[in-house]
Amino acid sequence: MIESLINIILFTMLAATSLAVVRLHNLFAITMLFGVYSLLSAVIFVELDAVDVAFTEAAVGAGISTMLILSTLVITGHHEKNPKHGPWLPLVVVILTGAVLAWGTLDMPLFGSLDNPIHQHVAPRYIQDSPEEIGIPNMVTSVLASYRGYDTMGEVVVVFAALIGVLALIGINEKKCAKRQYSSDERPPRPVLQVMSKLLIPYIMLFALYVQFHGDFGPGGGFQAGVIFAAAIILYTLTFSLDDAFDLISPRVLRPLAAIGVLIYGGTGIVTMLLGGTFLNYSVLAGDPKSGQHYGILAIEFGVGLTVATVMMLIFYAFVSRGEKGKVE
């Protein structure tokens, strides 16, 4: 009873948020509402028991993508331009798509029912045998990293491809602004924020490592950990300045690391090939298949975390350096 009430309220808020997004014209407000939208979906995912998805949605949807969109608004301007064409064609397309989707739900297996095909065919094997075959408690990680590890590698490559796209289009402006000296009677800007972010950032990084290595047991893993780690650096960039961030971690260091992350993932697969298994068959990595799986998952999760963290930082650097330094020149 209460649960369905919670559901109804959450979905109502979701719908209201999307309507407000349509109605508003200030892009900052819209971006924030998109963050709210992602957060609401994350809550709904928790409610549906999809905790790993919720984790990712909170970290990626509400977190890093909001920040990336915000940093582009500095480049593009923050007020919506009047569209050149009328809303009718998109509206028709959207309504048609929605209608087909609704039509598709009519014969869908009943939601939550136990004898649904999705609960009957592949999933039972994952649930029953993964503790035996892979030996880690979080089945989502088992599926992502081992049973369907090749897809996850593909997704890491997608993240890498996104970096390639951003570098091709705008690149990173590494030229430094002249360092501003503060005179003694003038305090640096944002003193409170700077002090607190200095205190906070180490703990955020520690938390990122926890999420990275706790992924076998609870929700988490390389994607989320990478995003959280990047968020720490982003916080530093925001409270200090881009030049300070470049001094901390230079894009020259990050760029090779992004490639190395992908190579760690792929290299694990190559090693398993050389040891006589198929690509990404971690069982051959050690005498005991279970510990082999464990090593393999540890290695590839590290590769994922490395690539995601560095790519997110680099993309953020690219946007901010374009937005802020473009203005100075």
Binding site: V157, F160, I164, R255, P256, A258, A259, I260, V262, L263, G266, G267, G269, I270, M273, T278, F279
Partner: peptide, 22 residues
């Protein structure tokens, strides 16, 4: 026996290598 995988993996992994060598 690895040929089908190698067909895709070689270019896929060469992309970061190329990026690395710069």
């Amino acid at each position: 026996e690895h040929l089908p995988a190698l067909q895709v993996i070689i270019p896929l992994l060469l992309a970061p290598v190329v990026f690395l060598f710069n």
